[in-house]
Design a protein around this nucleic acid. Structure first.
Lengths: 399, 399
DNA sequence: TGTTCATGGAGAAACGTATCTCCGACGTTC
DNA sequence: GAACGTCGGAGATACGTTTCTCCATGAACA
């Protein structure tokens, strides 16, 4: 009678396991129903009376039944896992300069994924091929892919959705999200000019990623348009010491700028230290802005104006876009980003066009979103009234 | 002849797929060998002549064959995935105060896992049950588990190895790693006393995690042993503003301390700001130390002495311990941590003892490792010669 | 009394791999 | 020339699900 024994002849060694984890068969046997019924009851499918459902659930609970994720994945083709790929310098998983940005972004991405029932697995681009080809991914988020990124290409070729943070150079992606770096830099330069800057310098990087390239181009374009000689120093952004040196060089020039924008997180500190060395008062002699997600710049002396790329917003958007693609909802325009205001939307597409032959996802265009940035104005870029954008609750007794 | 057609009668609809990804069967058919041979050739198992191996590999490459991770996991019971669980405050995946610590630790853990062929999946403890029960994990790293953590208990009950960062309170784990918080605090207090401190204050937290508890206890014990009245302020560490307020309160006391140790990362900044408000010079009027992984304290004015918990070392050790457990190498003592010097090793065991009945891993004791910390001495805690431990290359022209 | 439906549920076929078992063929050796 | 070890590889099974198909049963209806 116990329907357990005659499972179609399979599982002849019924005795020898029994120690192992309970499977769906065991639940079915214990509940006196079929496997189908258990599956349906637990997953809320099929047509079953409530009593059957609750009974099956009880039995499953009692046996401590946990469905095998591997089996489910094998059957359904969905793993509920999305990759978070990050470019690397040297051995380390994430880049130094993008540290705060990345951490915030990853945090938001994790939250967003979780909210929709997915988990994130971190896969540095430099990891051994066998590692990330060994995990069943439903899709991948790529942070700042390099041109012709082999990993991205391989993933895409497998038919997996790929969404990138940072407008992709030359690799095909399902969608991308990026800040409006051009507008951001122009905004900062205008802000500095309005504060009285006559000669604005730039601290930039030597790498060829999108962020560095677009920002530098925007700066050069602005210089042309207002007729200012470009004043910039470029350094390898992944080297923390090189930043301090470059900042020093920039302020040591005979044609010293009276305002500087630094593209990378530590630049504020670097520039402040350099200014101190040359006895330049900030903001009186030198206006300062840098791009950073760190709030230490709220408490430096003086507090430094920063550009925030809003990594949380980016992370959330990227993940939601990816999951939309995974679940086949190509519902453009309702990204459910919350209160995000998208400043502008352009179309990208794999402009090379010839080898569009991705096995799947070939029907929807590779589209992108530009997200706005936020300038947090502090004393370092203002010569008059120190009016801050973010009104932090100030403890009493401030001088 | 083409052995493809008669696969035992299965796959009757051979025509209809063909669009999908190539499976091992397709490779076998194309290479004119059996599935077994393909599997063996690709995995370097079995007895096969080299020519067969290379031929199979060529065919597999040509077809773009990627083994199904899900199927492999189902068959072998190994997913190559390890969970990284982190406690949460509110909605966010990781805690605010542990931010830099966590980021560094996670980074090292990711590297270490990758080096051994595993990938990390981030699973906040607050995530929906269905999410993390839906991913096939080989084991889990838990950061600072709370007492009787239900998630940890559930994982452990499933027979999964669990290694915790932070000595676990009351939940059973396979192994744990923690800093020697007691020794660290005593070291700092001695250091401050040696620098001339007479009344050392503490900025601590109100939460009950191991770190906060052990550190506070060490402080209180030290006070007793030297006969000093305890001077401390506790605040909810997850609230960034509360830290600034608590720092202010501590320095506003009538029995104001002449040295303070802050347990959390932002405390250095908080205390510096508070000292400025009260016109206290650091280090002349007030000695300062805080626990932080951030290098911003190298460039504050003055630079602040910090205690580093060496999160990279912890992350590496934790992951290696976990993978050792997963792979059944209960080889204690050869953790392959690299150049790490373990200061002391104690034995913990699930001291409650009664329900040791984890289905697996029951043979090896739940053992722990204490790792040393590092005090990075800077100006804020020295009244005489500013001799730093880390000799950062200083740019020329420093005043 | 037969026909139709809705209900509740059982059977069995995949999903794609790893691996255990076994088999033929080909030297070797006594 | 028969027993035997080794090489190279094929067959088949199991991993634990989901899901498609289909069958009873009883009620409603003509």
């Amino acid at each position: 009678m116990t329907a357990a024994a005659n499972h179609h002849g399979r599982r002849t060694t019924t005795r020898t396991r029994r120690l192992e984890r309970a499977g769906i068969r065991d639940v079915a046997a214990a509940a006196g129903v079929s496997i189908t019924t258990v599956s349906d009851a637990l997953n809320g499918k099929g047509r079953l009376p409530d009593e059957t459902r609750t009974k099956v659930r009880e039995v499953a609970e009692r046996l401590g039944y946990r469905p095998s994720a591997a089996a489910r994945t094998l059957r359904t083709g969905r793993s509920g896992l999305i990759g978070l790929t990050v470019t690397t310098y040297g051995q380390e998983p994430f880049t130094f300069t993008e540290f705060a940005y990345f951490a915030e972004m990853a945090r938001a991405a994790t939250s967003a994924a979780l909210n929709r029932g997915y988990a994130l697995v971190v896969l540095p681009a430099s990891s051994r091929h066998d590692v990330w080809s060994n995990v069943a991914l439903d899709g991948t988020v790529v942070i700042d892919p390099s041109d012709h990124d082999p990993m991205v290409a391989d993933l895409y070729r497998q038919g997996l959705p790929v969404v990138s943070d940072g407008k992709p150079g030359n690799c095909p992606v399902t969608a991308w999200v990026d800040n409006d770096h051009h507008a951001a830099v122009l905004g900062i330069l205008d802000h500095l000019a309005q504060a009285g800057a006559r000669r604005i310098g730039l601290l930039t990087g030597t790498s060829t990623d999108t962020y560095t390239r677009l920002s530098t181009e925007a700066y050069l374009g602005w210089c042309r348009s207002v007729g200012q000689e470009p004043l910039y120093e470029a350094y390898p952004a992944h080297d923390p010491c090189a930043g301090a040196v470059a900042a020093d060089r920039l302020l040591a020039r005979p044609d010293r700028p009276d305002a500087v924008y630094g593209l990378f997180d530590p630049n504020g500190t670097d520039l402040l230290a350099a200014a101190r060395r040359y006895h330049l008062r900030v903001p009186d002699d030198l206006l300062l802005v840098c791009c950073s997600e760190s709030d230490v710049y709220a408490t430096t002396e003086p507090p430094i104006t920063t550009l925030s790329l809003k990594p949380r917003r980016i992370g959330t958007t990227v993940v939601n876009l990816l999951i939309d693609a995974i679940e086949g909802q190509s519902s453009l325009g309702q990204t459910s980003v919350g209160q995000t205001s998208v400043s502008r939307t352009t179309e990208a597409g794999t402009s090379t066009g010839d080898d569009s032959g991705g096995p799947c996802a070939a029907d929807q265009d590779s589209s992108g979103q530009l997200m706005p940035t936020e300038l947090i104005v502090r004393r370092s870029s203002q010569r008059r009234s120190p009016r801050t954008t973010v009104a932090a609750p100030r403890p009493p007794g401030e001088s």
